[in-house]
Amino acid sequence: MNTLLSRANSLFAFTLSVMAALTLGCILTTAFKDRSAPVRLHVSRILLKKVEDFTGPRKKSDLGFITFHISADLEKTFDWNVKQLFLYLSAEYSTKSNAVNQVVLWDKILLRGENPKLNLKDVKSKYFFFDDGHGLKGNRNVTLTLSWQVIPIAGILPLVTGSGRVSVPFPDSYEIATTF
């Protein structure tokens, strides 16, 4: 019957189905894409201290300070279904007490339309590089990687790690100076 209500109803239903089909097409065309990109990392400064962390009364932990360069071209990672890239630089290492440690040192939100070519010099870490104890001292297996999460307009949320990685040899002794 061609009542106003039934017309509105079918129009609404049709709009909804068309939008669902378009969204599905958008998701499927971009779901299986390779989002990786080459990254070049370089560590310019490493410093190790032993300071009180925030987790307990008078509990001291190793705190690393790392300054680094990042260069990456993420232009190819963007396409019509990418709203944003969430870039993060993480340090991964193992210690006697923990098999896997991951600490995010720095992150950046790269929106669609912003310059996708990164060339950053002497970046200081945004977050404290505290270890869960004293595992940084003399640790040779700390590796830095730049990874990103693709935030789509609609679709899956893949995590991608850039191809370049750099190892950070931590010194065998603590820095005494109290300045940060």
């Binding site: 969430f86 993060y88 993480s90 923990n98 098999a99 896997v100 600490v103 995010v104 949320l157 995590l159």
Partner: peptide, 25 residues
């Protein structure tokens, strides 16, 4: 690290959606 997790905290009814920035396993 880097994953987005949804977690519940004791004493809060509503789960929170945030990103993992530190992992010790």
């Amino acid at each position: 690290a880097g994953e987005i997790v949804v977690f519940k905290v004791e004493g809060r009814d509503i789960p929170i959606v945030h990103r993992v920035i530190k992992v010790h396993e």
